[in-house]
């Protein structure tokens, strides 16, 4: 009986992981962040390596967060990690406005095609400010 149970658990776990993993990849594919990065850095030939990096990243992150393992290394590793994860989320956010076709319509409607960069900066600064505000003040108030 325990073997059956174990197999059932394995199958369910595998199926769940499969669904989440395909969803993650589909999400990345729709937003087109990886193609954008390869286009910027002119490294089209390494696109498969990038795919694997996303896969390994997802697996490592999943494993470490689920196992609650600790690396016990210097806390200053958090600085580059924070920066990289921020850039990643920032790119996702930018790609999302892209997919939703926000910019062309906004710029046309209000007749400010020439000022679109300045408007984009409003979004960028808004994101940075909102994020800092959240971590330094908002989250603290919420936890009280």
């Amino acid at each position: 009986m325990t073997t059956v149970k174990a197999i059932a658990v394995i199958v369910i776990g595998l199926a769940g992981g499969l669904a989440v993993g395909t969803g993650f990849v589909a999400f990345l594919a729709v937003l087109g962040v990886i193609p954008r990065l390869t286009q910027l850095t002119k490294t089209m030939k390494w696109i498969y390596a990038y795919e694997w990096s996303a896969v390994f990243g997802a697996v490592t992150g999943g494993w470490m967060s689920l196992r609650s393992s600790a690396l016990d290394i210097s806390k200053y590793w958090l600085i580059p990690l924070g920066l990289f994860s921020g850039v990643f989320i920032g790119m996702l956010a930018a790609a999302l406005t892209e997919v939703l076709n926000v910019w062309p319509i906004l710029a046309k409607r209000i007749g400010m095609v020439d000022k679109i960069i300045l408007l984009m900066m409003a979004l960028v600064f808004g994101k940075v400010f909102g994020s800092l505000f959240y971590w330094m003040y908002f989250a603290e108030v919420m936890s009280l």
């Binding site: 600790a70 290394i73 210097s74 958090l78 990690l81 990643f88 920032g90 790119m91 994101k127």
Partner: peptide, 25 residues
């Protein structure tokens, strides 16, 4: 996970994260 210690406000991670957010866009 990284340090093995607990922190209520891991600002060391969160401030670079916030800057990276703008940079990514």
């Amino acid at each position: 996970i990284i340090t093995g210690k607990k922190a209520d406000k891991p600002l060391l991670f969160q401030i670079p994260y916030s800057i990276g957010l703008g940079l990514g866009m």
